[in-house]
């Protein structure tokens, strides 16, 4: 078509200018649109990390499927684990379309994960030793994820936006599933309340880390270019403040505390002033040195290898029947 011929005649600078102008007009980019390599690479990094995190995130919860206290709870947590794997599949499809022009496939994403080249969310490197953790993961970890994903609903990359639209609808159920477990424990015996308090205390630093380091007026080049490309619209700290404003009052209303004795809400600044978690520890965790990193990666790798015969059988059958 004419427009494409003209487009390919443009210099790289002119293409970039047209691309940015398109984004500035609020238009979206599709998989087959021209995009700068930098934009593609930022998306690949973000979306493959998001997709793999959904899949790795199912692992700490799956541990609680056989041990859920009632049949209804077991069905609900199974449904949630199934949803998370479904979200992984949606996002990996988006990532695959982005890496296809680079000659890469899903197999490369899996191998990058096993080799430690592909990171996943810090929270999924952590332990979930009690039933209260299953509740806190649904309530606060999914709650945090909803905040990040809601921001990204308006992302400039249309296939990601459409995937997130489906994901967010289901995440609401996940948060409610978590709230339901948490309220049950909060309204229960002293022992149950203590178990929940311990879980909140255990997860607090991970929840603060979830959104990434604060900018302190120094937005990283990654964040800046993602905001320029309208892949994201809010900074780490802005997202964290939304989370704190929504959930801290609820934690207090239930009569629980967070392990931060000096935390307070600054009315004038309109933000929570909190103690920073150990950001060096955060770096180590996402590098794969968290308490459960090796175990969960091993589980994923083992499961991938053990199901290889299923994929082979399906492929072989598919070729036979055409």
């Amino acid at each position: 078509m004419n427009t494409q011929l003209e487009h390919s005649d443009l210099t790289e600078d002119a293409k970039m200018e047209a691309f940015l102008a398109k984004i500035d007009r609020g238009e979206k980019i599709e998989a087959d649109d021209w995009m700068p390599d930098d934009y593609r690479n930022q998306l690949i990094k973000l979306i493959s990390m998001h997709g793999i995190s959904e899949i790795m995130g199912a692992l700490p919860e799956k541990e609680w499927v056989p041990k859920a206290p009632t049949l209804r709870r077991k069905l609900a947590i199974m449904a949630k684990v199934q949803d998370e794997m479904g979200h992984g599949q949606l996002l990996l499809r988006v990532a695959e379309d982005l890496i296809a022009p680079l000659g890469k496939t899903r197999e490369d994403i899996m191998q990058d994960l096993f080799a430690g080249r592909l990171k996943f969310h810090n929270v999924f490197h952590m332990e979930a030793p009690t039933w209260a953790d299953a509740g806190v993961i649904g309530w606060l970890v999914d709650g945090a994820a909803i905040i990040t994903q809601s921001m990204s609903l308006d992302t400039s990359y249309a296939p990601y936006a459409r995937a997130l639209h489906r994901i967010c609808a289901e995440e609401k159920f996940h948060a409610q599933h978590g709230e339901s477990i948490v309220l049950e424990l909060a309204e229960g015996t002293e022992e149950q309340r203590q178990m929940l308090q311990e879980s909140i205390t255990r997860w607090w630093p991970s929840l603060l880390m979830f959104f990434g380091p604060p900018e302190n007026g120094n937005i990283t080049s990654n964040q800046a270019s993602n905001m320029r490309y309208k892949i994201r619209s809010q900074t780490n700290e802005e997202l964290r403040q939304i989370f704190l404003k929504k959930y801290l009052p609820r934690i207090f209303h239930l009569g629980f505390t967070v392990p931060d004795e000096t935390i307070y809400f600054d009315e004038a600044e309109d933000k929570w002033i909190y103690q920073q978690p150990d950001w060096e520890e955060f770096k180590q965790i996402v590098k794969g040195k968290g308490p459960r990193s090796a175990h969960r990666l091993h589980l994923r790798e083992m499961s991938y290898e053990e199901t290889k015969w299923v994929r082979d059988a399906i492929l072989s059958y598919g070729r036979q029947v055409g």
Partner: peptide
Amino acid sequence: KSYRETKGYGDLQGRW
């Protein structure tokens, strides 16, 4: 399968 849907959690708002 109300445990899969938000309608299975209608009591939450009142409790909060």
